[in-house]
Design a protein around this nucleic acid. Structure first.
Lengths: 147, 147
DNA sequence: GTACGTGCAAATTGTTTGCACTATC
DNA sequence: GATAGTGCAAACAATTTGCACGTAC
């Protein structure tokens, strides 16, 4: 699996065995920008790797989340969705299509971080600040863009 | 059910029949500040109203969300949680205890709203902006406070 | 009285787990 | 070769649904 060299390294660095199923799942998630669920990922990879089981996909996603190579995105939908992008960013969630799109804006992130640097939360250790913009795409086929 | 007069009115105004189960569920949620799940609510009200079924609690919460008397809060947990507070506010989520606490700060909300007034999202109609502060309580027994 | 809501139980959906086997280190 | 990971199927948990009965308007 020559094409998985970087992925292999990431897994090893995280202290995980670089197994074939893990590389395939992680690779698929890194190449997806639509924040798929475990079932989505399973569907997509089983063409190339038919023997992979859904249970393993669930287990693999759990360990990837544990070692912080991947994060979960929580939205209204009744299932968990995943994101291999670990840079600080927000999510745009479309109620109509259930689509989740990444949203970057360092200016806004600075604003929010500055805020939490001034106002402190007592009795709480902040790990992460999640920002979700909920609404509806006008044209469901097209991505949202920022002007 | 004299104590439910205001609730009765809210339901009627929303175009819903003011049934006993609906009033009991809505009342319970309004008196909870811990963002309970359907099962939590069912457990809490069945002392006073033993005949109520869990299925009905689910259905009632769904219609209350539909008419915007109640909102869903999405966090990591594997179940849906509800909030009868419809004022704009954020949520503090504790990874250790699974507790959700409301978080008000008009200054921060102004900041974020100003931001989205300037930078527009193309092809997207924003309905709501959700802010979630994820982390861990130091003392799990005590609420988080803002300084 | 009628249309909508409810209780109950069964069905569905998403996720987790136990166990025998396999592959990585 | 030891240990941790996988496939498979069964178990579980949260939520939804069909249907006969009940209740608000």
């Amino acid at each position: 699996m020559e094409k998985f060299v970087q992925i292999k390294e990431k897994l090893s660095n995280a202290g995980l065995k670089a197994t074939h199923p893990r590389m395939v799942v992680f690779n698929e998630l890194m190449n997806s920008k639509d924040h798929p669920s475990a079932e989505h990922i399973h569907d997509r990879i089983k063409t190339d790797y038919p023997s992979i089981s859904l249970g393993s996909v669930y287990r693999i996603l759990d360990v990837l989340v544990d070692v912080k190579l991947v994060q979960r995105v929580s939205v209204r939908s009744g299932y968990k969705r995943y994101d291999a992008n670990m840079e600080p960013h927000g999510h745009i969630y479309c109620l109509k299509t259930d689509a989740i799109q990444d949203f970057y804006d360092s200016e806004l992130y600075d604003l929010i971080n500055d805020f939490f640097r001034k106002k402190k939360l007592k009795n709480f250790k902040v790990k992460e600040i999640k920002l979700q913009v909920v609404g509806e795409k006008v044209d469901p086929e097209v991505d949202v863009t920022i002007i």
